[in-house]
Design a protein around this nucleic acid. Structure first.
Lengths: 238, 238
DNA sequence: TTAATAGTGTCTATAAGACATTATATG
DNA sequence: CATATAATGTCTTATAGACACTATTAA
C-alpha cells in the first residue's frame, strides 16, 4: 500500500455510490435520488446516484457500505452487487478532493420498495436511453452511469448477468426478454435456449407459468449470486 | 454521491496501489517493493505492491496518482493502465479505516528501469506461480494480486491485452508466446494468427526480425492503449 | 377450432482445434 | 544441402443466426 511511513496526508472525502438497475416492462431503469435543495449541499435539487460518505463506525467494509445504502433506498437485502470502479479527483466535488467507490446492483423490479430518506427528498426509477438518462446529473454521475451501462451491456453479451434482473423464478422467454431489453436488440430464440440450458446455470422448479397460451416451464438459478461466463458473445463480429 | 449535507465524517486513509506485470522469458512477473523496517510502518520488511497515499496537492486524479507511482518505481511514462477495483475496510491497515484504489499496469520488460525510492529499500520482479508469488505479502495484497492475475488471464482469453507486455515492435510468434505465458497453456498457431490479423489490431512495420531461420514480419499495434475485444474466447467450453 | 406462445429442429456461416504443408531464411 | 521457424492450408467440430416446424394451453 504505502512506502511512506507518514499518515499525515490530508485525506480525500470518501464516498460510495450505487448504480441500481432494474427492468420494468420493456425499459431498463436506473434508480436516482434528488439532492436536497437546502443551500448547504452541492448540486442542490439535481438528480444523482444514491450514495454517500463511508461511515467508518458503521461500515466495516466498502461492500458493507454499498449494501447499507442499497438497503436504505430499496429495502432489498441481497441483490446482485459488484464493484464498478472508483472515481477520484480534486474537482469532482466542490467540497474538496474526493474519491467515490462505485457499485453496480441488479434488482428484480418487484422485490424493492423505494424509501424516501431524510435528505433524499425524492427518489425514482428513470429509463435509460442509449447511455444516459434524460436529466442532467450531479457531480460526475453522468460519466459513472455511462460506465455502468457499458459494463451491463458488455457483460450481457457473454455472461448470465441479466438473470439477476428477474425474480427468483422465471421462464426462459422472460429471461430472453431481459437480455433483449438490456442489449437493445433481439436475440435468437433457439441458440439462446441452447446456451442457457447447456450451461449449468438454471434448474427447473417443476411448476409452470400459465397464461394466454401454452404454459412455460419455470426455472431458477442454480447458484445465486454467481455469474456464468459463456465462451462466445451473442453477436459474432461481422 | 451523497445525500447528507455533512462532510464531518471521519475520513478513511486513501491510497493507490499498482499491480505491475511484465513477461520475462517464460515467466509472468509482478513488481514488488519491500516495506521499510523502521518500526514505524505496518508490515515491516514484507514485500508489497508499490503504492502509497494519494497526495491531494500533487495528484489531480486517481489515475494521475497511479501514473506517478508507476513512474517513480519503473521510470515508465505511458504503460497500459486500467483500474482493477478498490479494497476498503476497517482492519486491512492497522493505522485505521483505509481504502485503496488498485490499478493494473502492463509493461514490456525492456522498457523499464527499477528505481529504489527513499523508503522502498528493495524492489524487484517476482514470478507468478498459479495465482500468487511465493512470498507472503503485506496487508491484503495477496487478495489484490490474485484478483489482478485473474483479470489478466481472463482478459487474455478474449482481448488484445497481452500485446502490452511486448515492446512496440513484435512478431506474431512473440505475441502468441506472451499469450501462452499469460494463459499458462499453448494456443493454436493458425487460428491465433487469423484472429489477430483479421481484427483491425496490428499493422506490419515493413521490417523483419532475422534469426536462426526464416525471418518473421514485425508488427506494431495500430492504436496504442486501446483494447480489441474478440467475440470468442480461445478455448471453447468442452 | 383458432390464437398465441413454448419448445424443437434444420440449414448455413463462422471461427476454433488439430495438424499437415509450404516458404524462406541461416549455416 | 539440412535445419529451424514463419506462414498458410485442410479437415473437423462447436455454436451462433435465421427461420421453419411442432406442442400445448386458453378462449
Amino acid at each position: 500500500m504505502s512506502d511512506s511511513a507518514s499518515i499525515d496526508f490530508a485525506r480525500p472525502l470518501t464516498t460510495v455510490d450505487v448504480v441500481i438497475f432494474t427492468v420494468t416492462g420493456s425499459k431498463l431503469d436506473v434508480l436516482l435520488v434528488k439532492r436536497p435543495d437546502d443551500g448547504k449541499d452541492p448540486s442542490p435539487g439535481r438528480w444523482a446516484l444514491p450514495g454517500g460518505f463511508v461511515d467508518i463506525d458503521r461500515d466495516s467494509t466498502l461492500d458493507a457500505c454499498a449494501l447499507r445504502k442499497l438497503k436504505e433506498k430499496t429495502g432489498v437485502n441481497a441483490p446482485y452487487l459488484e464493484q464498478l470502479g472508483s472515481w477520484g479527483s480534486m474537482n469532482r466535488d466542490p467540497r474538496g478532493w474526493s474519491a467515490t467507490h462505485v457499485y453496480f446492483a441488479l434488482l428484480a423490479h418487484d422485490t424493492c420498495t423505494l424509501q424516501k430518506g431524510a435528505n433524499a427528498i425524492d427518489i425514482g426509477w428513470f429509463p435509460i436511453k442509449n447511455f444516459a438518462v434524460e436529466h442532467s446529473l450531479a457531480f460526475d454521475h453522468k460519466d459513472i452511469l455511462r460506465s455502468a451501462i457499458e459494463r451491463l451491456r458488455s457483460k450481457a453479451e457473454y455472461t448470465s448477468l441479466p438473470a439477476y434482473l428477474l425474480p427468483e423464478e422465471f421462464t426462459l422467454s422472460e429471461l430472453q426478454y431481459v437480455y433483449e431489453v438490456v442489449l437493445g436488440r433481439e436475440v435468437n430464440k433457439s441458440p439462446f435456449r441452447k446456451r442457457i440450458l447447456s450451461a449449468d446455470l438454471v434448474e427447473e422448479t417443476g411448476s409452470t407459468r400459465t397464461g394466454i397460451s401454452r404454459p412455460a416451464a419455470l426455472y431458477r438459478l442454480k447458484s445465486a449470486g454467481k455469474l456464468t461466463f459463456f465462451p462466445r458473445t451473442f453477436e459474432p463480429k461481422k
